[in-house]
């Protein structure tokens, strides 16, 4: 349980569940529709991810908390983004940076360039 982390969006969703748990999955969908404007498949997807992480359970349509909110935030460690989106962005999308793998050597080289510039300024 030490490496359990939540992204900002997942945290918001988890808060909703903790607020209303236990509740039926149908009710959860309605709440998410109201509060977050999420569609049903989206709600179920994120719920599934959090169940896989061990925070909640979905037994035959009843959603309940495995770990309470207090316990979770007590054990929380540094956040990282779970990179579930694999591959590069489609070529027609304007992105901030490419998702091409940056080798350690290249990353270090660029960091050196940046540090040199900082020294200069």
């Amino acid at each position: 349980m030490d490496n359990l982390t939540l992204g900002a969006v997942e945290a918001r969703f988890a808060d909703l569940i903790w607020e209303h748990a236990p509740l039926s999955s149908g009710e959860l969908v309605k709440i998410c529709e109201r509060e977050l404007h999420w569609k049903k498949p989206t709600t179920y997807n994120v719920l599934r991810k959090l169940c896989e992480k061990g925070l909640f359970r979905n037994d035959y349509g009843t959603v309940s908390a495995v770990m309470s909110r207090a316990d979770f935030y007590a054990a929380k460690s540094v956040k990282f983004v779970s990179d579930t989106y694999g591959g590069s962005f489609p070529a027609f999308v304007a992105a901030f940076t490419s998702h091409k793998r940056l080798s350690k050597e290249e990353a270090d080289e660029i960091q050196r360039m940046i540090d040199a510039a900082r020294e200069e300024s």
Binding site: F80, S82, D83, S88, K100, L102, E109, I110, Q111, I114
Partner: peptide, 27 residues
Amino acid sequence: SQALLDCSRERGSVAACPLAFGETGVK
């Protein structure tokens, strides 16, 4: 530039990258 670099660093496990065309080198 630091923001550019940080956003490009490898994160977690990256799935196989298809042909990376239309993408700009961070360097």
